[in-house]
Design a protein around this nucleic acid. Structure first.
Lengths: 195, 195
DNA sequence: TGAAGTATATTCACTGGTGAGTATACTTCG
DNA sequence: CGAAGTATACTCACCAGTGAATATACTTCA
């Protein structure tokens, strides 16, 4: 009945999350992950077929938590729709000030695996981004915006642009700028929509 | 009087360009680069202090060519300022259809080196992106747009967003969408500017 | 002029270390 | 018992970087 708090599999995933995100996919060995999880490499291979399999599981484990985070930022924001969208970017700017922030794990993994388009982790990453875009589309449709899919895509572009440029310049101001552009685009789409 | 066409150093850089861009920084060994360049690894170390040094040189060698490409696309485009900006995105969409296209080398390198913010290659990458932003600012200022720096930054965000999302989804349509958003932002900035 | 010296450029063969993945044996508990 | 889970100890390939030697070309000065 005593809870060891975490199974071996969970400890592996926790360690993989931290290390893959902090250092990058190819920079981290399974030896390092096993050591951090407090088990041996063979146990990693018992729970995961290969390193690629673990990479996929790492991204899959971030899918829902990340989406929920965005939903929370959006939902709890004050103001109208444009402000709620902008709030997402404001929160990213805040996150990006933490020293451990290293951009978007999905985007960075996609960059590292660019030469393996069929990699299962790439599909998880693409699925994650699609879900975000679909959610934005829903929100815009609910607000009666006609060009909801186009607008959602523009927001996605600004969001991923913010992740990338902040990482290059180490300057969260790019998230603020993206938030302003997003706010303007949403406001403009609402204005051109007769009520 | 016979021309050996390329020095060893140039051959190394050419090989590094192709391999680093195609496979990623950490995925490519100096053995592979040396082999592709038709020389010995030790010769690589004669011309470059370390792998990190070669990575830096690789990015530096892409700085001007990439900027010139953007300038050419912009300069040769028909139409007004918004259309010229949009043309950049249209050309990216075309490029992204080539099978060898793997996104922006600067962005992907930044993603791989996210855990080494002080890496010299990161500075080269940041400098490259800053130059693009500065050039856009100039163009907008020349057109009499008051908020030129803000607008330039928004274009940068859309551009890097396009690079990232195309890579994730393997879908050049994101460049078209970004181009439309960029076109709209520029047109809007021009409209709100009294002539 | 030409021999001796020096800088440039390159090779072969190697090292110490790490990487992914595995063969086999031990443990623990239903 | 026997299956699930874990450990020890290993293989084999690769990788960043180096030591020692060599070839080539450019000085310098007797």
């Amino acid at each position: 009945m005593n809870k060891p708090a975490e199974t071996a599999r969970e400890r592996i995933l926790t360690a993989a999350n931290k290390l893959f995100y902090a250092e990058g996919i190819r920079a981290v060995s399974l030896d390092t992950i096993a050591e951090k999880a407090g088990i041996t490499k063979k146990t990693v291979y018992y729970h995961f077929k290969s390193k690629d399999d673990l990479i996929e599981a790492y991204l899959a484990s971030r899918d829902q938590p990340n989406l929920n985070q965005f939903r929370k930022w959006f939902g709890e924001a004050e103001g109208e729709l444009p402000d709620k969208v902008q709030a997402i970017f404001r929160h990213i700017a805040v996150s990006a000030r933490h020293p451990k922030w290293k951009g978007c794990g999905f985007l960075r993994t996609a960059a590292e695996l660019a030469n393996m388009p069929g990699h299962p982790a790439m599909k998880v990453g693409a699925g994650h981004k699609k879900k975000f875009e679909a959610w934005m589309t829903e929100e815009f449709e609910a607000a009666g915006i006609g060009s909801a899919p186009d607008l959602a895509r523009h927001i996605v572009l600004l969001l991923d642009g913010a992740f990338s440029t902040i990482l290059v310049h180490r300057d969260p101001a790019y998230a603020e700028a993206a938030g302003e552009a997003a706010q303007a685009l949403v406001a403009s789409a609402m204005a051109s929509q007769a009520t």
